[in-house]
């Protein structure tokens, strides 16, 4: 990644944090608010593949952790896993399909919240499994599915050259879908 790419990624991350810390926290309904920081590794996984998805998940997670009372580093860990997972799961798919980002955001966000709660519980925060988990998963996943396309555009702007890393070499050689 060039310095310009790093600056762009930083800018996009800053925009996401600003929206999350202002608009999204105020959209709280029934004690639950959306979490758009999860979108970053998911769409980065689609745009740049598993490696970039994992990297974006790590850094976006660390930034998100600065504002959370939950264990520091937990969002980075889960973000890395989800970014890698989404990137790997979408390798063989047509990444230009319009339905892919919302579907990936829906499934990725649900999985993120589930893993987050389970790992948090393992790390000495058992209440994380006893909160209104289903409501959190539904609210976060649906909002993220709706916002997936604009988020994808922003991340695609920040990561202009889609990576071939992790793509099966046979697919790269034949110029197949990325």
């Amino acid at each position: 990644m060039t310095l310009r790419d790093v600056a762009r990624v930083g800018l996009v991350m800053l925009a996401f944090v600003a929206v999350q810390q202002t608009l999204m926290l105020d959209l709280r309904r029934g004690g639950v608010h959306p979490d758009i920081m999860i979108l970053l590794p998911i769409v980065a996984g689609i745009v740049g593949g598993p490696g970039r998805g994992a990297s974006m998940g790590f850094w976006a997670g660390l930034v998100a952790d600065l504002f959370l009372p939950t264990p520091f580093g937990l969002s980075a860990l889960v973000g890395s896993l989800i970014g890698f997972g989404v990137g790997a799961a979408t390798l063989a798919l047509d990444r230009s399909a319009w339905w892919l980002p919302p579907v990936a955001a829906l499934g990725g966000s649900a999985l993120y919240e589930l893993i987050y709660a389970m790992l948090g519980s393992l790390l000495g925060q058992p209440q994380m499994l006893h909160v209104q988990l289903v409501r959190i998963i539904v609210a976060v996943s649906v909002v993220n599915a709706v916002l997936a396309l604009p988020a994808l555009r922003m991340v695609a702007w920040a990561l202009p050259e889609a990576s071939t890393e992790g793509v099966p070499t046979s697919v790269v050689a034949t110029g197949g879908p990325r």
Binding site: A54, L74, L77, L81, T169
Partner: peptide, 29 residues
Amino acid sequence: MAMPRRSRRPRTTLLILVLASVTIITLDA
């Protein structure tokens, strides 16, 4: 038919990031 080979780099990246995250969580705790 030969199975497609995948680059190992993303997996190495993931491993490093997971280890970094676990280290941060442990040190913080």
